[in-house]
Nucleic acid binder design. Sequence first.
DNA 1: ACAAAAGTGTTCTCGCTACACCCATGT
DNA 2: ACATGGGTGTAGCGAGAACACTTTTGT
Lengths: 257, 257
Amino acid sequence: MKKFGSLADFILEGNKHFLPALSIDNVVFGFHDNQLKVLLLKLKTINKWILPGGFIFKTEEIEDAALRILQERTGLKEIYLQQFHVFGSRKRNKQKFFKDLYKEMGIDLPDDSWILQRFLTLGFYALVEFEKVRPLADDLSAQISWWDVDKLPDLMFDHKEIIETALKDMRLKINHQPIGFNLLPREFTLKNLQSIYETILDRKLDRANFNRKILSYGILDKKEKQYTGGAHKAPYLYAFNKQAYFKALQEGLEKNF
Amino acid sequence: MKKFGSLADFILEGNKHFLPALSIDNVVFGFHDNQLKVLLLKLKTINKWILPGGFIFKTEEIEDAALRILQERTGLKEIYLQQFHVFGSRKRNKQKFFKDLYKEMGIDLPDDSWILQRFLTLGFYALVEFEKVRPLADDLSAQISWWDVDKLPDLMFDHKEIIETALKDMRLKINHQPIGFNLLPREFTLKNLQSIYETILDRKLDRANFNRKILSYGILDKKEKQYTGGAHKAPYLYAFNKQAYFKALQEGLEKNF
DNA sequence: ACAAAAGTGTTCTCGCTACACCCATGT
DNA sequence: ACATGGGTGTAGCGAGAACACTTTTGT
């Protein structure tokens, strides 16, 4: 929110620059220690966590807004993004929350503030390379960190539902999206990739069958270099063959997991 | 938009009652003559067609808004609805269009009218039983009618893209949604059902294999009664077995077309 | 030597495909 | 009778599941 010099400015002037009644919430997925993780912010005043979110400038494309917000929290420029759902229950009442929140920060919100009206939020999810992310908290947050998707902390509003819906959506599109490609570093083991699929699909896969199937797509290049540091036999490293991968995705990776 | 006595009222007062900058557009799918159809409105003043759409009351759930709009155009109360995408390009500029449109109807829109600002639109699609629909045009439209999805007329704004995106989304979810159930009358032939799948998937299916597979789900009851009027051999009629169908859907109709 | 994880092989089953054949009915 | 479309049978293939066996490496 570069346009605003201070938080107070943002509160007073925001309605002039943003689309009204609309926010964006990003579910940022990363992958580390063979675990799928989500990036969350901890509020300064309340012991709850929220998704990195923000608003859309009146002159801005909505995807660009989501990217801008993500860039501010992760430092990344190129991010794979996917719009997946609009959350709009009028029960997601943030009024009291925002009044208290800003009060504690020394700002007295007028009752007719644009920020107190009913908001719909557009849910996006992003797939990012864990190691490249430089998490940075925002003005309202004391902390930003990664959480295992299956061990989430206490979340504000409907943000837990948003994460779960994002996961469901990914499950549906797993054979049509470059999921591993965006979550993994350039070189990785088949075990890494298998863990991602297992998390998203929420079931165990047979190692032998997984390897055969994923290799049969012809989208991975085997590197002779080997990963060291593992306690036992060193696995081969693989890298996505970009060309073959995107070609295959267009046709849909028809075989299903 | 019952709350408004006249179109002028709606223009002047709408911003007090509706969520700002947001509209809803519905892609209503029906099935007739073994063809998938979409319900479209023809504008009074321009020779183009649009999707039935509307706005969301500030106190209304967004799904309820979509249902209300649909009810007004189709007369149906129970409708299967699915939110599928938000369309928000700032290029979808309706300013000139609306000014001209309302001018021709004798209303002079002020430049700062709420209806001239940038709108995002929430795309929903609905699956309805063709025969039960009683299409009813709205104040801005001269005509409402069904169009084959593969022979669409000239559409306003990005409405063609919206329809195509809806179809793609249905294709993705075809094995997880009660598609046939909502589009077909209580009793129908396997050929009818096959036509729906062929349209959505955009490819021909083998009759024998389709029949076997769809029957293997155990979600159809065979009726001994037979359809007459066909030129040749009379096919059996089938009906969905509600219980079995919804149970199977929850588990995902795992086998894929 | 042993444990643990990686890599590979094998067998069985089941579903999909393609196509063939028979059945029913209106002209 | 024949054309047309509906219903059903079948052979072959390929993919997936389950599980066994071998290989590598650190302790």
